[in-house]
Simulated scan of single mutants.
Amino acid sequence: MRVRPILAEALRLFFPLAAAHGAMLPFLWVVAGGYELPFASDIPPSQWHAHEMIFGTYGMALAGFLGSAVPEWTDTRPARGRTLLCLATLWLPARLIGAVGADVLSPVAALFDLAFLIALSVLIGRAMLERRTTKHLAFLFWLLCFASVEAGVRYCWFIGDVALAARLLETALCIFIVLFSLSASRINVVVINLALDPTGETSPYRPHPGRRHAAAAMTVLYMAAALLLPESAVPAWLALAAGATFLDRLAEWFIGRPAFRTEVALLALGNAFAGAGFLALGATRLDLDLPPVAGLHMLAIGALGCAVMAVMIIAGLRHTGRDLLHLPWQAHGAALLMAAAALVRVLPEFGFPSGLAPLHHAASAVLWAASFGIWLHGFLPMLAAPSLAEKRGCH
């Protein structure tokens, strides 16, 4: 049965939902709500905010990526139509509850979030099982870990242990960084080779095998130590090591002028933010005079914000039959605004420009919302229409 183009594969529906959520929620929380949520009492509003960014905006972007990428990698039929609508229906109630910080409804939201993540896991696991491949099992493993941490956060909120909930939210953030690192090891090969040779006839770039998973491995070690040994100095040194591996990975982008192409530079910037963020976390844990959240914001807004936007631009174009040679102006605008949102948010925490604080929270929220809004303006019409290949086939 023929389905509407926007329901033809996961990213066509889920990327716009992630962008709409990303545009509205931080803007309402910071600019309109003044950092408060109307029904939050026992759960800190800052934890609601972090949870909804990680499990809401980024969670739906992850579903769009995995829901389309895994079928492509395994050469299986992607989920479409009613299946995608059912997944979106599972995701939405928790977002509405999180938008107002309804503490009393958090267990209900937990059921919907867990059902969403488990259903997504079943979809991508089924594709791997159909092809009897274990090549992409790491994504399924970390997705299930992501679901487990979601359950842990909600349980800590239920029993009132907000300190452990904060550590688990950092764990969820680190899991997303691991997923970004694993995804970048696949995406970079395609994107950099196309930047070097737009014809796609040659593959002049080959990633260094030693760098491929080093950053993800160090992130896992830091994540485990920070969760289990929060008062120890071990997480501090592991954070510095993780930062060094991400900065070392920047060598992958030493490709000359093509490194300044928007889609290439945005992935590199996400990697750079990850490295700097872990260095800041390590320095904070070693009692350097930095705000405790400086490193976390570099990871959450800088690294993941740039990475998610890069994937939404790259996959949004390629999965609608377009190439990366001529990006629409909305792609450049969204990338620039996302980078600006991250810089405006984190630089005042390091003391410059000092005159921007405390307005940098609202300024960053506006830039963040504008980034997703411009992406929606340019990409939603593409995703809601047949791909260029289908249009050519009709003539």
Rank of each mutant, 00 (worst) to 15 (best):
A233K: 11
E52G: 01
W142K: 04
F141Y: 10
P230T: 13
T199C: 00
G355I: 05
L37V: 10
L267P: 04
I159D: 12
S106P: 00
P353S: 09
V104W: 11
L25D: 09
W368P: 02
L137D: 06
T74Q: 05
F350L: 14
V366R: 03
T202L: 01
I54L: 15
T320E: 04
R261T: 10
A172G: 09
A69Q: 06
C394Q: 15
M223V: 03
R131K: 15
R261E: 15
T284C: 03
R2H: 09
F112A: 10
C145F: 08
V189S: 06
L179V: 05
G282W: 04
A274I: 03
L179F: 09
A20M: 12
A225V: 08
S371Y: 00
L114N: 05
P386L: 05
V70I: 15
G34C: 11
L376F: 02
R345V: 01
A40S: 14
Y155A: 14
A226E: 15
I6A: 08
S371G: 08
P26N: 08
P235G: 10
F260A: 15
I187D: 01
F180S: 11
L7S: 05
L286N: 11
H361A: 14
R212H: 03
P258I: 12
A294D: 01
A127L: 00
M1P: 01
G373N: 03
V178M: 13
A385W: 06
H332E: 12
F180H: 14
D42F: 00
A365D: 09
Y155Q: 09
L96M: 14
H377T: 03
A362I: 06
V189H: 07
L267W: 12
G277I: 00
A88N: 04
R154E: 07
V104Q: 11
P353H: 13
T245A: 09
Y205W: 15
E231L: 14
G33T: 06
A251G: 13
N193R: 07
I301E: 02
F146R: 12
P358M: 15
A242P: 05
L279M: 11
G378W: 00
A307Q: 12
M223S: 13
A242V: 05
R318C: 09
R95N: 05
L304K: 02
R132Y: 09
T219R: 00
T134A: 15
A268Q: 10
A331K: 03
S371D: 06
L66E: 13
A195V: 03
P353W: 13
L87G: 08
A216T: 10
R249H: 12
E72L: 11
A259M: 09
L299W: 00
G316I: 12
A32Y: 09
F141I: 06
A19D: 01
M53W: 12
M53A: 12
